[in-house]
Design a protein around this nucleic acid. Structure first.
Length: 580
RNA sequence: GCCCUGAUAGCUCAGGUGGAUAGAGCGUCUGCCUCCUAAGCGGAAGGCCGCAGGUUCAACUCCUGCUCAGGGCACCA
């Protein structure tokens, strides 16, 4: 429609005999208020200066030269010089039938051009269950994936499993210590080991499977590793020594037994949790699968292009060449690669898989890391727009006035599973994405559970269910009724009806801009507005009236609304119930 | 010190790549169920869009400076 209007104006502009250089870009916008028609054009305002004429006069000339068109009912000029277009009713009537015909396809487009996009998100360390902070990334990533698919991208999703680092060793140690404790070997449990009950569960399972195979005696733990003083003076150093002790006591094979028990147990739990939450991944990429070869290949690529140099025994990446604040170590003095190095290798691997665009969704606490990873990608690809990093701010959970804290190690966190069970998947998915991601989110558990209009999820779902109910009622009096038989929609003349048709006509535009900005919350807000208008309409005008013409036209309208709500909710990962 | 993100109604937040009179919800006050789901609707009150400049026909929106709030600045992962 916009393009059509632009064409009409372009034709009209020829009458002004303009110098090509004066010709600004023609932009057509939706009007904010219906008193200004459906679309507005500011071209006359832009031309006022070069033409040295009153914008109102210019607008008048343009208006008079616009060719007649069936889709346009009327054109108005408004001060200070806007040209307002009013669409013909018939184009809206046609839209209702289009929506019912296209069903779930309404709102989809091909602007993504089938480009391959990889969205990496959640990627939480497999050292414990997902907590509510991860939930926001999960909900946002899944909705963004749906959104980009809707506008025609070829989307894949990926979870990067950090199964190689020190945190995993701490987990293995924690499990082993719990195992020893449950087998009456009295060893102390450090404060900075993983405290959660799930560690005990995994240890218990280990006992059942492997009996006493992993046992030892308390006397192998030297005093300096177990005393209060030692753990307080250098807690992290003590942990490292305990890990070394575990490795040497258990031997490589048995250590792997403990390690793998932790990893597979927790990863299974995370997988199941996310699946139940409606969040699916195309790939689960293991950090350990980044072999030395892959790492060396990536490092070699950088070395070859002279982006690495040696200083103080370590290898440094020239990140400042690409706008980072300082250069970064990739290979330590001791020859070990840094985490940054394996991240480079990981992204090098992503690139080799042929994606047109990479999207990473990270917690806001990682933002300082962005310049260096962008720098690395720029060094590897020569382009700076291959990777798009979206930051997600923390979600702060409230129960009444109590602010709930989260910390995986202390074990006092609220898990995503607990949250889902308490407020339902639908409410959780909606609440997580109703705020834009770079805004702090206050997640109110009490509100999410309310079954009133205060709760936006139920408000929207209720609109959908109400429409479904009307359609069910119709079936009792007119079982053979079908929308395709309805052709006369001219009886839709109420103010609320016009307004609703205008609103659903905007749905595809909202989808497109939400996708452009990677902002699913736009859809959440749109659905709230649409639902509000529907509820108001429902209360003032009865649908199933005596007059069949009016009844049929109104049915078509509300069924179209129902379809739009269903489509929007699907993108957000929220169900659209028929009955509530 | 440097960097990022915010600052809009009493509260929580929307306000495409500048447009016409800045919008919702909650809360407050107050009406509506012999009628398709009251998990709903209507009405009222509530604003110097953090402050000060600048660009523009036009600034909540863009630029600069400042104030305040949260976060980040490792040869940790």
């Amino acid at each position: 429609m916009k393009q059509q209007l632009i064409n009409l104006i372009t034709q009209s502009l020829q009458s002004l005999a303009l110098d090509q250089n004066d010709l600004p870009k023609i932009s057509i916008e939706r009007t904010r208020s219906k008193e200004h028609g459906d679309f507005a054009c500011n071209i006359a305002l832009m031309l006022a200066k070069p033409l040295k004429k009153n914008p109102l006069e210019i607008a008048e000339i343009i208006k008079n030269h616009i060719p007649a068109n069936d889709a346009i009912e009327r054109i108005d000029i408004a001060p200070p010089g806007f040209i307002n277009f009013y669409l013909a009713k018939s184009s809206y009537h046609q839209l209702l039938k289009t929506i019912l015909m296209q069903q779930t396809q309404f709102g989809t487009s091909t602007v993504g051009n089938n480009k391959k996009v990889l969205i990496e998100f959640v990627s939480a360390n497999p050292t414990g269950p997902l907590h509510v902070g991860h939930g926001r990334g999960a909900a946002y990533g899944a909705s963004l994936a749906n959104l980009l698919k809707t506008v025609g991208f070829n989307v894949e999703t990926e979870y990067y499993v950090n199964d190689a680092g020190r945190q995993m060793d701490i987990l293995a140690l924690s499990i082993w210590l719990r195992y020893l404790q449950s087998n009456h070997c009295l060893v102390p449990f450090p404060n900075n080991a993983y405290q959660g009950d799930y560690v005990r569960d995994i240890a218990h399972e280990l006992s059942e499977k492997h009996g006493k195979q992993l046992m030892t005696t308390p006397d192998i733990f030297p005093e300096e590793l177990t005393s209060e003083a030692a753990t307080q003076n250098d807690p992290e150093g003590t942990m490292d020594q305990l890990i070394a002790l575990a490795k040497s006591t258990l031997g490589a094979e048995n250590y792997q037994v403990v390690f793998n028990a932790g990893l597979s147990n927790i990863l299974d739990d995370i997988r199941q949790d996310l699946t139940e939450f409606g969040v699916d991944f195309t790939h689960w990429f293991s950090e350990r699968s980044l072999t030395n070869t892959k790492l060396e290949t990536a490092i070699a690529a950088l070395k070859k292009a002279d982006y690495l140099y040696q200083k103080e025994g370590a290898w440094w990446f020239r990140a400042t060449d690409f706008g980072d604040t300082k250069n970064r170590v990739v290979i330590r003095e001791n020859g070990q690669p840094t985490y940054f190095a394996s991240d480079i290798a990981y992204h090098f691997d992503k690139l080799s898989r042929g994606y047109d665009q990479l999207v990473n969704i990270w917690g806001a606490d990682h933002h300082g890391y962005i310049p260096r990873i962008q720098a690395a990608l720029q060094a590897l690809t020569g382009s700076s727009d291959k990777l798009n990093v979206r930051l997600v701010q923390f979600a702060i959970l409230y129960r009444g006035n109590e602010r709930l804290s989260m910390s995986t190690r202390s074990g006092s966190f609220v898990t995503l599973r607990q949250l889902r069970e308490e407020v339902s998947n639908d409410a959780a998915r909606f609440f997580y994405v109703m705020r834009k991601p770079d805004q702090h989110l206050d997640f109110d558990l009490e509100l999410a559970k309310k079954h009133t209009k205060d709760n936006p999820v139920y408000y929207i779902q209720y609109a959908h269910a109400r429409i479904a109910s009307v359609v069910r009622n119709l079936a009792t009096t007119a079982p053979n009724w079908h929308w395709e038989q309805i052709n006369d929609l001219n009886v839709l003349s109420e103010e609320e009806e016009n307004s609703l048709m205008r609103l659903i006509a905007k749905y595809p535009e909202h989808i497109e801009s939400a996708a452009n900005q990677c902002d699913p919350h736009i859809i959440a807000h749109y659905l709230q507005e649409l639902s509000a208008q529907f509820h108001a309409y429902y209360n003032t005008h009865k649908v199933l009236v005596e007059d069949q013409k009016i009844r049929d036209a109104r049915l078509l309208l509300i069924m179209a609304i129902q379809q739009v709500i269903a489509n929007g909710l699907a993108i957000l990962g929220v169900s659209a119930p028929e009955v509530m």
